[in-house]
Design a protein around this nucleic acid. Structure first.
Lengths: 138, 138
DNA sequence: TTAATAAATGACAAAAAGGTCATTTAATAA
DNA sequence: TTATTAAATGACCTTTTTGTCATTTATTAA
């Protein structure tokens, strides 16, 4: 479905949020281990998420990653599009550039409704709601 | 959605089928032009489809590609899985290896139903049914 | 004020996807 | 039976994605 970077980003953020709920700020090592993702690639992705405003980080002893609990939790759709763009939510099944409501391919309308369901599902779920459900991927 | 190879494969097959309906057997050059796909990459993909039993080919003058009109037309789902595997129809949103009906991730069930809709859509449509609707992508 | 800790940074490398090309093989028609 | 046509084949190249690593910067606590 999504590319590796997106998958790791989502797993990391949910893990960080779950740990934050427990008053903890996990570091890269812990996050990579807990999410079963490559250590250094995870570090790179976390850094991108920090620059993108999705995460906060603290250097030095006691440091690690955390999420601003003041702001409303970001939804999954927004994380996905920030990491890998809109392609998944807008492309034609056949990759036709001019496929649209105006000149639809034979699958356009039915595929569109499926895509919209996916978009809704991902928009209605946030990193926080997932963290609360999933409880740190034990 | 799908990778380039799958997109080109689908476009090529629908084009070939549409031309076959008119009694024609298009060659690589014509197919690549008509589907706006790279010439040599298209040749490679067509050859794979021939080896996979999805297409027939004829060498020499008057040659080109065609589809066995005796056999029932193959559905889109089968073309996609033959070209790029089941990943799209089976993977977890978060890329979790052990996500399943037995130990579902928080999005498993709702995502599953969307995936199943997609699978049905693609299973109910064949290269022939699309060719009849689309008429050669003019 | 220094030792320890942990993220930031940027260069690099491996693997996969996407794409090109030259040559060979096979078929057909003149 | 040869010239022409068109697919088959396999080597190669480019770009993108995925992943690694060494070094630097910042923070904290002793």
């Amino acid at each position: 479905m999504f590319n590796k970077e997106t998958e790791y980003a989502l797993r990391s953020m949910v893990y960080i949020q779950a740990q934050n709920l427990k008053g903890r700020k996990p570091g890269v090592d812990e996050i990579a281990r807990a999410t079963e993702a490559p250590r250094h690639f995870t570090a790179k992705i976390l850094h991108r998420l920090v620059r993108g405003g999705f995460l906060l980080s603290a250097k030095g002893k006691g440091g690690g990653f955390h999420i601003d609990q003041e702001k409303p939790s970001v939804n999954i759709y927004d994380v996905v599009t920030a990491v890998e763009g809109q392609k998944i939510f807008s492309g034609c099944v056949f990759g036709l550039k001019n496929c649209s409501n105006e000149s639809p391919c034979p699958l356009h309308n039915r595929y569109k409704s499926i895509r919209e369901s996916l978009g809704e599902l991902l928009s209605n779920e946030t990193i926080l709601s997932l963290a609360q459900k999933y409880q740190a991927y034990q």
